[in-house]
Design a protein around this nucleic acid. Structure first.
Lengths: 338, 338
DNA sequence: TCGATTTCGGAAACCGATTAACAAATGCGC
DNA sequence: GCGCATTTGTTAATCGGTTTCCGAAATCGA
């Protein structure tokens, strides 16, 4: 025998309307005596209302969806923590999906979210489903884009100031006397964050009087595990390089490995500044200088913003929040050279 | 105007029965001409059936839930990857929740799962809601417990052989000539994995002829950040210690920090073997010897098992799968002493 | 040609909640 | 004791699908 609202009503000798009201904290229509009797029965039966029925009727589920690109990168687990906390504080549940940077999976998950009638979604977009995003935005489906910019898409954004972070990283290297600084980046042209970091690198160097010819930008394959060997080859061809700006925390690990394997010393021969502070940054050899981003805050704000926009009667104008990075100086960027 | 099955039916000039059949791939009752017309309309309207309504009627949602204890530990993101892949391959969606090792949150999430009528759950239990687990099992709610053992709970388990891993770790230290080996562990008595690892340590030492007095087991606070100073005090009081078996990857980072801060050299003065291989293990200074656990496999098997049990007409007998760890030798455990 | 199948498709009940509209009971002033 | 407002609770429609049962038309066999 399934435990439904009808059963509760029957046992308590009232109609399901009354039970429903009490379940939803609406006590205006029932006297205390009745209320307590119903509450008692609910307790005894350990009744759990069917969220599907509730959602079907009321057309909202109190569930948010998030699709992100890589759960294995600790940056995202921190963001997730922020999203989770906001959801918990504001009474929402969360459905988490992993696009693995693949447009097809992203599309599938978003459609799944819609079919399940999730109240809204947070997305770190692959930036490859422009048509879908636009349709979503046009249909007023509550949505917040995080971390990456999707140009021309008029929805809420919570993003990071990547130019600033990159500039800080490069300036730190320059400050420590490095003269031939390279920037290493994964070769995915859709990821605006990486692009912006390279732009920041470019700007910082040119701003300090370097000519465009002195720019050393190396693009590495994201897949296939060829990154390390490519790095070694590149460093072999450019022995003048004495500083590296790494635009991604996973990439940084590969760079360190490559440099060590070449017998070069860190930070004496080559100084490194990496993007994204992680649990391991301070434990590496040498401890890593990094750009720290407020991931938790980004997640929290995004969820908060999304929920606000869900609850709003009239949809608010899309807003963009830009969060500022911070430089954490450790040994890997080298000391000031005399 | 909302796009429902009725609208599709109307536009196609058929009844919703027919549309429903076609949506579910049941073409036996419709001729090709009608089928194609309906398909056409579905396409044009970009119709997405309401999963809530579907779930309400058919009483299954094709969603699995997982509640785990700490998403920030990379061990769990790997497990999650396995679960996700299995879900994707077998046509399920996943709802991920984070108990943060708190019984109350675990309870809340499980109840949420039930209300949402998820088809089954995977759980890394806090082991503090025994009554709830038992009730769940008794109610035949499909469930698979991972990583930790809940004694007396007769449900599917996919767990790791922790005794074996701990034994391997300690033997490696002994093999490398360490004579005074300590085991460091977080002080949560509910986590069976940590307990088993300490048991393994105990057994390995006693098996090699050590007396119980020679056991050095230090329990550290999980919360509060006092671990590092406690470690330093302990090592100060026990200068004879020349090997440490760390039962947790996060703890390992703190141990390394403490040891370095005391001016001791790794691995010369103190050798370390840590539990759980992670992305950073090989990049630490010195590179860390670890026990690697097949997390992906655990996740995949758990989800697979769960789905099998959901689909089974007659519920299969609870089964326990035990997965074996592997030792990865790097410099931190020291070389063989002459 | 006629009854029996087979093919194709619809009507309506149902899943388990919410909620508008309505009705009975009670209280209260006079 | 009467009229009216307030309190307390019910009936029934509804959300958007699935599925059982049934009926009409087409096909078939003899």
């Amino acid at each position: 025998m399934k435990i439904t609202i009808d059963l509760v009503a029957e046992r308590a000798g009232v109609s399901k309307t009354t039970v429903s009201r009490i379940m939803n904290g609406n006590f205006a229509h029932t006297r205390d005596e009745t209320k307590n009797r119903v509450l008692q029965v609910i307790q005894e039966l350990d009744y759990r209302p069917n969220a599907l029925a509730k959602g079907l009727k009321s057309s909202h589920t109190n569930v948010l969806g998030i699709v992100l690109s890589n759960l294995k990168n600790p940056f995202w687990t921190v963001v997730l923590e922020g999203v989770e906390d906001a959801c918990r504080h504001l009474g929402y549940n969360l459905m988490i999906c992993n696009s693995s940077e693949q447009a097809a999976m992203e599309e599938q998950y978003i459609k799944e979210f819609q079919m399940r009638r999730l109240d809204g979604i947070v997305i770190n977009p692959t930036a490859r489903n422009l048509e879908l995003y636009t349709k979503l935005a046009a249909s007023k489906y509550p949505m917040v884009v995080v971390n990456r910019r999707v140009p021309g898409l008029d929805v809420h954004h919570v993003i990071m100031n990547n130019m600033k972070g990159a500039t800080m990283a490069v300036h730190q290297l320059l400050h420590n006397g490095r003269r031939n600084i390279a920037a290493f980046v994964y070769d995915n042209p859709y990821v605006s964050t990486w692009k912006e970091r390279v732009d920041g690198y470019r700007e910082a160097l040119q701003g300090s009087g370097r000519s465009p010819e002195e720019l050393r930008i190396l693009e590495l394959e994201l897949e296939g595990g060829t990154a390390k060997s490519t790095i070694m080859r590149y460093l072999g061809e450019h022995p003048e390089i004495d500083g590296i700006f790494s635009t991604n925390n996973m990439l940084t690990l590969q760079i360190i490995e490559a440099v060590k394997e070449m017998g070069l010393k860190l930070p004496e021969d080559i100084a490194i500044v990496g993007y994204d502070e992680t649990v391991w940054s301070q434990h590496l050899d040498p401890p890593l200088t990094t750009i720290m981003q407020p991931g938790y805050k980004m997640g929290y704000l995004a969820a908060q913003m999304l929920i606000k926009s869900i609850k709003a009667k009239r949809k608010p104008k899309p807003e963009t929040i830009v969060l500022e990075p911070e430089l954490i100086v450790r040994k890997s960027c080298g000391a000031v050279r005399s």
